[in-house]
């Protein structure tokens, strides 16, 4: 899309700057961790939902931003994770078993969904993943015996940690935040490994990549599967957070919002999903008085962004640094 430095790649060369950035990030994380102390339970719930969504958008950023694959089906994986969790947790199965199972199921389904990606061009892929999302939504709505249909599944229990109850909003927030940070750290490490470079090569130029021995089949499938697994994990936390699972949050409109969150933040930038997720989860709540106007403005803002700032919000500093418009 735009010619900008990959920030993970930059991190390899600009170490001193990174150290200052690390301190800043640590301060932001600690401040965010303490924020709910000042908030009522709904505010804390929102902060937790923000973390949960972040897990899904970070996964999507790997698929879309780093590996360059189009996906309009992230909410389907999110939903699969949530339903697996709701059903299994209600059956009394341990959260810590459900978590990897949901991740693995989504990983495998992600592999399968990646197959059309091998056969078709980008824009077709948008339709294929969109179709998959619609299909998953229909199953959630129609298979009442398993999913409870439109009534959903209520009374999903929350996990405990070393015997400590996580039923309290604050305790569950910190638990979720810790999990989110671990997931983000793992993704950061993955993206800095040679795998991350192979994903970027696949995104920038698949034909060249293949001629250099990069197995684009394997990396395309992995990009889908890892992104999907992240959404599955997010779904498990979502089920435990809301304690009620219904089809609505997993409609393809949610996938669309997640994709746009990645683009708004800055596709393929490590902290892009943070900005994007603020825009789709927290801002609408702060700007509640705007009601549906918020989404209307958001939609048109995305159009404007693509025209004037295709690199997303995080590309603004570079824009000033370069002092000229470069696409």
């Amino acid at each position: 899309m735009s010619v900008v430095a990959d920030d993970v790649a930059l991190a390899r060369t600009r170490r001193p700057l990174l150290r200052t950035a690390n301190i800043a990030i640590a301060i932001v994380v600690v401040a965010f961790a303490l924020l709910p102390l000042l908030l009522k339970s709904y505010g804390t719930y929102l902060c937790t939902l923000f973390c949960v969504t972040l897990m899904a958008t970070y996964g999507l950023n790997l698929t879309v931003g780093y590996a360059g694959q189009m996906s309009l089906g992230q909410a389907a994986f999110y939903g699969i994770g949530a339903y697996i969790a709701a059903i299994a947790l209600k059956a009394g199965i341990s959260f810590y078993l459900v978590l990897p199972v949901a991740a693995i199921v989504c990983f495998v389904v992600g592999l399968l969904i990646g197959f059309p990606a091998l056969r078709v061009q980008h824009h077709y892929l948008a339709f294929a993943t969109l179709g998959f999302n619609i299909l998953v939504y229909l199953v959630m709505r129609n298979e009442e015996k398993i999913t409870g249909g439109t009534y959903g599944i209520s009374g999903v229990p929350r996990p405990t940690l070393f015997g400590l109850s996580l039923d309290g909003v604050l305790a569950f927030f910190w638990f979720t935040l810790a999990a989110t940070l671990i997931l983000i750290a793992l993704l950061g490490w993955l993206l800095r490994s040679p795998w991350g470079r192979a994903f970027a090569a696949l995104r920038d130029n698949p034909i060249r990549a293949e001629s250099l021995g990069i197995n684009i089949t394997v990396y395309t499938l992995l990009a889908f599967a890892i992104g999907a697994a992240c959404a599955g994990i997010a779904g498990v936390f979502f089920a435990a957070l809301v304690q009620f699972v219904e089809p609505a949050p997993f409609h393809f409109a949610a996938s669309l919002m997640m994709l746009l969150a990645i683009i708004v933040g800055g596709s393929g930038r490590f902290f892009g999903p943070v900005i994007g997720t603020v825009v789709i989860v927290l801002l609408p709540e702060w700007l509640r008085f705007m009601q549906n106007w918020y989404l209307a403005i958001f939609g048109f803002a995305v159009v404007a962004l693509m025209i004037w700032l295709p690199g997303g919000v995080l590309s603004i500093p570079e824009r000033f640094a370069l002092g000229k418009v470069r696409r």
Binding site: V3, V4, A5, D6, A9, L10, R12, T13, P194, R197, A198, A200, A201, R203, D204, N205, I207, R208, A209, L212, G213, I214, N215, G268
Partner: peptide, 21 residues
């Protein structure tokens, strides 16, 4: 021209050989 446009020059070169390791 067929390079990995967003990767650094050094990363382009490493990407070219890493899959053989």
């Amino acid at each position: 021209l067929q390079v990995f446009v967003k990767l650094s020059v050094r990363d382009n070169l490493i990407a070219a050989a890493q899959e053989f390791q």
